[in-house]
Amino acid sequence: MAVPKRKTSKARRDKRRSPNMKMAAPGLSVCPKCHEPKLPHRVCPNCNYYDGKEVIAAEA
């Protein structure tokens, strides 16, 4: 069985791991009512509309 002769340094180990640790930006869509960016398939936090209907009643 193959055994490493020397300890792998942190720099060498992290250099190998770094390409896989990048975070991806969330995909944003535009609200058709207020034209603000929002997450897809979710209620718009700005105007409280989803699929052309008001889902959350606006505070008076």
Rank of each mutant, 00 (worst) to 15 (best):
N48P: 04
A11C: 07
V3T: 15
C47Q: 03
A11H: 13
R42V: 14
P19V: 01
A58T: 10
H35R: 08
L39N: 11
K7C: 03
R13I: 02
R17I: 09
M1E: 08
P40L: 02
R6G: 11
K5F: 12
R12K: 14
R12P: 00
C34Q: 08
V3D: 14
A24C: 15
P45A: 01
P40Q: 03
C34F: 03
S29R: 11
R16W: 14
Y49F: 06
C31F: 01
V43A: 01
P45K: 02
R12M: 06
Y49W: 08
N20K: 13
S18D: 11
M23R: 15
H41Y: 12
A25E: 13
R42F: 07
N20Q: 12
R17W: 11
C44A: 08
G52Q: 02
L28W: 10
A58F: 09
R12Q: 14
D51K: 01
Y50C: 00
C34Y: 07
P19Q: 04
R17V: 06
K5T: 12
G52T: 06
N20F: 11
N48D: 04
G27R: 11
A25N: 09
K53H: 10
P26G: 04
R17T: 09
N20T: 11
S18P: 06
A11P: 00
L28E: 07
G27I: 15
P26W: 05
K33I: 01
R42N: 13
P19T: 03
N20H: 10
S29G: 05
